[in-house]
Simulated scan of single mutants.
Amino acid sequence: MSRRRLPQAPAWWYDGSPPPLHARLLSTLYGGLTALRRGAYRRGWLHKQRVAVPVVVVGNITAGGTGKTPLVIALVARLRAAGWTPGIASRGHGREHEATPRWVDADAAASLVGDEPLLIARATAAKVRVDRDRVAAARALVAAGCDIVVCDDGLQHYRLARDIEIEVQDARRRYGNGRLLPAGPLREPLERAADCGFRVLNLGVAGEGVAARPPGLGEWPMRLQVGAVQPLHGGRPQPLAMFAGQRVHAVAGIGDPERFFAMLRDAGIAVVPHAFPDHHAYAAPDFDFGSRLPVLMTAKDAVKCAGLVDAQAFMVPVEAVLPEPFWLALLDRLPARSR
């Protein structure tokens, strides 16, 4: 069977080895273009567009996944509990026909709306709009009755003015070698992180077998709490511990698949890992593993796979948990709600 190879981040991003000359040269060019663009917005040569409600952007300055989606889901729940009516704007990376804006319903096809927006829509039941133009997405959400907009990703989408920026950082990888793309993982210079009102450090699941530096000054810790394992084809949810001592196929098409595999191993599960590219478009042959073991996958993958894999497939959901002072500080930064 032909299998796609998983694109890996270059080793020099994280292992301390020097980047090759071509990567350093391209990084210099990329840095210059990034600085010009940021400067154009700072000087008013390019104009930011403000919408009629507050905007909160959850993003990162590194390439790859850092745990933004669980934080967005938790943020929507806290805003709703505080009396807001949040809507979510997202680009919907990896979807077909990306130039076409779409509303994301719980029964939408992930191929048309994107895996992360669909996961958010199902988890929150909030209005979700995917659009390459986040200003247009935000305006559509306001017109639909939302009184606050949460952007899933979009720190670099400067055209949309925002009230709060939340940077999410992976505690294991941090900023890698601290260099800009492609010599390093940074989308923007390190000083960009200092502009964000909140910096959240994703520590993963408690006990996860990966090294993680503790939060530093000005960083808020976020842990991921594993929920009940959900059968993809219906049935009673079960604790992850029911798989302890078993051998399973573990599927992850996320920014850092090893984090998912490590979480399962720390739960006493014997993992046969299957890593796929982030936002992978799954097909039935991807699950021809050669042995009929239970299949465990992330929630982001599960929204795309229910019709492709047999009844022994399960979704392993996680929930973002942050200190109460974080939520109080964030809500305090928002303007008073209009009644």
Rank of each mutant, 00 (worst) to 15 (best):
R43Q: 09
R43I: 15
G44L: 14
W45P: 07
Q49E: 15
V51P: 10
V51K: 12
A52D: 15
V53N: 00
V53A: 09
P54E: 11
P54I: 06
V56L: 15
V57F: 11
V57M: 01
V57C: 01
G59M: 09
N60I: 12
T62S: 02
A63L: 15
G64P: 03
G65F: 00
P70T: 05
V72G: 05
V72P: 03
I73Q: 10
I73F: 04
I73P: 06
A74I: 04
A77I: 01
R78S: 05
L79C: 07
L79H: 10
L79S: 12
L79V: 05
R80D: 03
R80E: 08
A81W: 07
A81I: 06
A82Y: 03
G87S: 10
G87F: 11
G87M: 12
G87A: 13
G87V: 12
S90M: 07
S90Q: 02
R91Y: 00
E96C: 15
E96W: 04
E98T: 09
E98R: 15
A99S: 15
P101E: 03
R102W: 01
R102N: 13
W103T: 07
D105Q: 14
D105H: 14
A106K: 02
D107N: 12
A108L: 03
A109G: 08
A110T: 05
D115H: 08
E116Y: 04
P117C: 02
P117G: 05
P117K: 10
L119N: 13
L119W: 05
A121R: 02
R122L: 01
R122I: 01
A123W: 00
A125T: 13
A126P: 05
K127G: 14
V128I: 09
V128T: 14
V128G: 07
V130P: 07
D131H: 02
D131W: 02
D133V: 03
D133T: 09
D133L: 04
D133E: 13
V135A: 13
A137L: 03
A138Y: 04
A138T: 09
R139H: 12
L141E: 06
L141I: 07
L141T: 04
V142Q: 06
A143W: 02
G145H: 00
G145T: 02
C146D: 04
C146R: 10
D147P: 03
I148Y: 07
I148P: 01
V149D: 11
V149P: 00
V150K: 11
D152M: 04
D152C: 03
D153G: 13
G154M: 10
L155S: 05
L155F: 05
L155A: 03
H157L: 09
R159I: 13
A161P: 07
R162G: 05
D163K: 07
I164H: 10
E165G: 11
E165H: 02
E165D: 15
E165M: 08
E167Q: 13
Q169E: 13
R172Q: 14
R172Y: 04
R174H: 15
Y175E: 11
Y175M: 13
G176K: 06
R179T: 00
L180Y: 13
L180S: 00
L181G: 00
G184R: 05
P185A: 02
L186E: 09
L186Q: 10
